[in-house]
Design a protein around this nucleic acid. Structure first.
Lengths: 207, 207
DNA sequence: GTCTATATGATGATAGAC
DNA sequence: GTCTATCATCATATAGAC
């Protein structure tokens, strides 16, 4: 007689295994987004996920690893790339800047993405590892996707300028909640800051 | 015979009174700037100032009050206003945006100002009181000084857009150290982002 | 004004029972 | 997989001696 006894066969994933794991990740994303790396305690995260604090350590080892796992965005660069590639004419017609804002604002509607990005932003200012992750994210997501659209001489400066406006927009709109930017529609924002990004990408910026 | 004994008269401030007070403030500015509100401990601040931690409480009561005292910029709005008023022709000639960036970058050379602003930025993301102070600062410093230069309909949106680019610039250049923005000269930055601010102030931004 | 001593509580992490 | 119990460390804050 096999282990388990009565007639019910033991197929599929055993209960409670991956459910708590992902519950912890969701809670971690929310709390890292709300309070930043230092402010979010493992105890709070566990309580939010409805599990024991020791389980968090059991699954992820330590807080750093949990943060890395929670903030990891496996396919965001791909999503951004796909969105940008969806309108190939924009690049030639000088609408790349506007398309870029529109994409950023649209991707932001995804709650998981939003929490991850805010968590990174919030933590980057006080946690060096988070800052490194944010820099890498900006590099891979923005730089790699639009780099071939800008000319070589001041390419890095142009990308950095784009990043400065995008980061500032995310900060003021989604973190500091500066009005009326916070409650503006995506369309309004696209019209307002699109031309800025366009100029940074292909306009006159140096002296 | 008066208290104090020998010939030396007891005039002026007694030693050790305001010296440690201001030493604490300087240390607090530096540590709040480097580590944010939560990361900077009173112990660290006291150690940096070379005084006993209990003295910090004795002088300022609690951490909140110390933060408020350290981050208080009594005359920054005045400085900003004076710098903007120094070139009255700029407003009429459409160079207000460039003058604004130039002023921000120039004021930033003041180390005390720089530390205060970074401290506010770094703390604003995890500390609600710091966020409120930053919003007030942005309001009084930027809004009040250039509000009369922009037309009424979307005045608040225009100011918020200016704030978004300025905050993003400070974040990427001075906190995240994104290159080549971090090592660019003030002149380069003025040329690059000046037109952006000018357009936000007086250009076409809505649909 | 300055410091020692301490109250009080939260944190990340670990060992080990079930 | 789950939880209890606990360690070591850090924090803010206070009381009170000198």
């Amino acid at each position: 007689m096999t282990k388990g006894g009565s007639g019910r066969p033991r197929r599929g994933r055993r209960p409670g295994e991956s459910k708590t794991r992902s519950a912890i990740l969701v809670a971690a994303r929310r709390l890292f987004a709300d309070q930043g790396y230092d402010g979010a305690s493992i105890r709070d995260i566990a309580a939010q996920a409805g599990v024991d604090p020791a389980l968090v350590h059991h699954f992820y080892g330590n807080k750093e690893a949990l943060f890395t796992a929670a903030m990891h965005l496996p396919n965001l660069p791909e999503q951004l790339g796909a969105a940008l590639a969806s309108d190939p004419a924009a690049r030639a017609e000088g609408r790349l800047g506007e398309l870029l804002v529109r994409t950023v604002v649209a991707l932001w509607e995804d709650k998981a993405l939003q929490r991850t990005a805010i968590g990174l932003l919030r933590s980057a200012l006080t946690h060096e590892r988070a800052a490194a992750m944010l820099r890498d994210f900006v590099r891979s997501a923005i730089l790699a996707r639009v780099a071939d659209a800008v000319e070589a001489p001041d390419r890095d400066l142009r990308i950095a300028l784009v990043a400065s406006q995008v980061v500032g927009l995310l900060m003021t709109r989604y973190v500091l909640h500066v009005e009326p930017l916070a409650s503006a529609t995506g369309e309004e924002i696209a019209h307002a800051v699109g031309p800025t990004l366009q100029r940074y990408l292909s306009g006159q910026i140096s002296m």
